[in-house]
Amino acid sequence: MFAYIIRRLGYAIPILIGINLLTFYLFFVVNSPDDMARMHLGMKRVTPEAVESWKASHGYDKPLLINSGAESIHKLTDTIFFEKSLKLFVFDFGSSDDGRDISFDIGQRMLPSLAIAIPSLIIGLLVNITFALLMAFFRGTYVDFTGVILCVVLMSVSAMFYIIGGQYLLAKVFRLMPISGFDGGLDALKFIILPVVIGVVSGIGAGSRWYRTFFLEEAGKDYVRTARAKGLAESLVLFRHILRNALIPIVTGVVSLLPLLFMGSLLLESFFAVPGLGSYTIDGIQNQDFAIVRVMVFLGSVLYIIGLIMVDIAYTIVDPRIRLT
């Protein structure tokens, strides 16, 4: 397995270079260094000298990809792409274009993102599995039928509606929790409840329907029929046999999500004023801060790759027949 992981990590390097190149290209198609300078210097009284000076001090005064004026290897190394990208691979994220240390900000914003994402994932998983099991247990009855309709309805509602509706109903009309905000330590609890509730409720429709299909698929297999033939109670069949086997795709799916939890939720964080990494990415895009955008895309890619490797490992754990070679 160790050799497999090393090999997968080796494959990751060209992928990350490719992603970096693509991000770089897409960003600079839309924003030139002059645009970035003007955005950072403000809208009033920006002189061409100030633009040039800003570019020079932030390292944007060089050619983008190829420096035709340089010699030999410097044609490639004396460019914005090389200078801004190389350090990423040793996780030196440098400073944002407005001068703040990116690693510091990421460290500070990671916890709020996790504070929302982890409870949402765990509670959501429990609720979805419970609801899906309920529908599977009463398959073909009015409980199953009503449950499926409810899932379709919940899936059809937009995320924005859940957020605005949840804020209006629970925080404004019923006044049960703050509408938005965040705080450190235990004080964060009261701010987390509402986004977590909304995150969980908005995910019930899709999640439960998906898990229900796993359970029903398992329920039709021979070993389940055998279990029933042995005279096991339906509840035992469901919890001891069906649930355990249906959990394999669920667990592997969840494992791939785990690293991405660090990246936060763009929409929830923005509406609930949660200072997480999701809103950090949005701010970086809006402010044309290439340093932040580049780091967040890179970090997201690295975490995604790690997630996929973890899935492979998880397969070997939940299904002993699988070997990583």
């Binding site: 925080a171 905000g181 923005s270 509406f271 004023a273």
Partner: peptide, 9 residues
Amino acid sequence: EKETIPYWN
């Protein structure tokens, strides 16, 4: 406070 709706409420 990024959004106007929570601000207003």
